[in-house]
Computed example of a mutant assay.
Amino acid sequence: MNTNSVQFFKTEESKPIPEDSDIIVAAWNLANPENIGKIIRLAHNLGASKALFIKDKEAHRESKIKKTAGFSFNQMAWEFISEEEFRQTLNSGYELAVLETCDGSTNIFTTKLPKRIVLLAGSESHGIPENIIDLSTCKVYIPMPGGCKSLNISNALSVAAFEWYRQQTAE
Rank of each mutant, 00 (worst) to 15 (best):
Q75D: 12
P129Y: 07
Q88W: 03
G127H: 08
G104V: 00
S92N: 14
S150H: 00
K15V: 09
E83A: 03
Y141L: 02
N155R: 11
I128K: 06
A48Q: 08
F8D: 10
K64F: 05
W164Q: 10
S21D: 14
P18N: 01
H60T: 03
D20Q: 10
N29P: 08
V6A: 15
N107S: 07
T89I: 13
L157A: 05
K64D: 14
G147D: 12
T137R: 07
A156L: 04
E13K: 13
E163Y: 13
P33V: 09
R166S: 08
P18V: 05
S63F: 09
R61K: 09
G122E: 06
E19S: 12
T3K: 09
K38P: 05
E171A: 15
I17S: 13
N152W: 04
R166C: 01
A27R: 01
V159Y: 05
A51D: 12
N74V: 15
T111L: 01
T110F: 03
R41S: 14
I24M: 07
W164A: 05
G47W: 14
A121N: 01
V118D: 12
S123A: 11
I40R: 00
A26P: 01
A26Q: 06
M1Y: 11
G37P: 04
I142N: 08
I39V: 15
S123W: 00
L96A: 04
G47Y: 10
K64C: 03
I36P: 00
T101V: 15
M144E: 06
I17V: 15
A69M: 07
W164G: 02
T11R: 10
L42R: 08
I39C: 14
Y94S: 11
